[in-house]
Design a protein around this nucleic acid. Sequence first.
DNA 1: TCAAAAGTGTTGTACGTACACCCATGA
DNA 2: TCATGGGTGTACGTACAACACTTTTGA
Lengths: 231, 231
Amino acid sequence: MDTKISYTGHPKILVATDCIVFGFDEGVLKILVFKRRIEPFKGEWSLIGNFVEEEESVTEAARRVLYQFTGLENIFLKELKVYSDVKRDSGARCISIAQYALIRIHDYDKGQVEGHGAKWFAMNELPGLVLDHNNMISDALDHLRQKATRKPIGFELLPEKFTIPQLQILYESIFQKKLDDRNFRKKVLSFDLLIKLDEKDKSTSKKGAFLYRFDYRKYKKLEKSGFNFVL
Amino acid sequence: MDTKISYTGHPKILVATDCIVFGFDEGVLKILVFKRRIEPFKGEWSLIGNFVEEEESVTEAARRVLYQFTGLENIFLKELKVYSDVKRDSGARCISIAQYALIRIHDYDKGQVEGHGAKWFAMNELPGLVLDHNNMISDALDHLRQKATRKPIGFELLPEKFTIPQLQILYESIFQKKLDDRNFRKKVLSFDLLIKLDEKDKSTSKKGAFLYRFDYRKYKKLEKSGFNFVL
DNA sequence: TCAAAAGTGTTGTACGTACACCCATGA
DNA sequence: TCATGGGTGTACGTACAACACTTTTGA
């Protein structure tokens, strides 16, 4: 009747973690998925995931699978939500801790991704995924939007040097709405967290757009106060 | 090497849930804790918690223990964070999903609380708790503050009928700072979610303060847009 | 009658929003 | 020279912050 009377007499449960891996490429937000290798639903699209082993935390398990698939370490990773419905996985009783990751899509190891049968899909071209993975994605997107309005989270998705129009397109693609260029630029610069470089990116226009770097040092100091990047 | 090659060959793990139960009483925010009944740390203060059983989700496990301790159902409950460090519990490898709950402190079943050796502590008089439970509380408080600025979460903690000064004291106690009465009242009323009653509460002043009810119906309609209750 | 809490309004400032034109350049 | 995307400034409205006095009533 009482709780925690003893550690014995309680079931142990399979614990997994699934990662919603966001990347930004060709002006659209993408998600990394792969073809599941075990029954049930073998061969169907799935988020990349892992079981949590004895000697690792949930975060470590997630970083392990991220490294396997992309070759990247030090990825931005944020816990999303626990999915624990008894019937969520028809293969076995298994709870999953969903986390979302933001990666610089051009940094990853392409061979490694393809070697694992993984593929990037644009948000609006996502296939149906196994189990509750589509729910996880939609929850992650809500969360990402929330977070992106308060923290300059978008920089995790861009290359180290980027232009303001690029940043704007990223935010437009996260929020699925057009933002006003003048106001966007004004606001982004007002935080004084971008360092203007002497280089221009001429790949998208003849005039060229100045490249910027994000000032992580200054950011850390301001972190507590919060941001609002959406106009 | 690959992930999820099979459901077998992966460890099963003890899964628990711990609840940070907030209540508001005598003008201060309180937390419900109880004396742990199992080794290690038997007899020390602990958050109320539960192991997750085979046939229930994490949320169900939490509601089960909340019901045991307070006799209440339909409590506001929000997932906080997963604590999964390999060494977090010296009794056994066990991950815990922390959740916080908001209850109307006068609604609960006092006999039930005391029967379980549980006790309410004011936030600033909290004893040291077992394991990582003090961390859980501090994370929960951060979360509660975040949430309280965007959602009218405070109503979960007050009795059904309450006065505006009461509501203000609650927010002051959550944020640990004085708020301006005039601005607070103005803002709270501006959402148009409070229904003024014909009764007054004279327990705290000779003049008496009008009682209000929260308009849940109207709230549900506005929910998506978000709020900002802090001035 | 007075102490103690409830209740009320105004004004300055900061920030968000809406909006239109010039600039630089390569083709 | 012109088409294309990059870059700039202003005016308005809304929302927050700061601030002091009047009202009610039981003791």
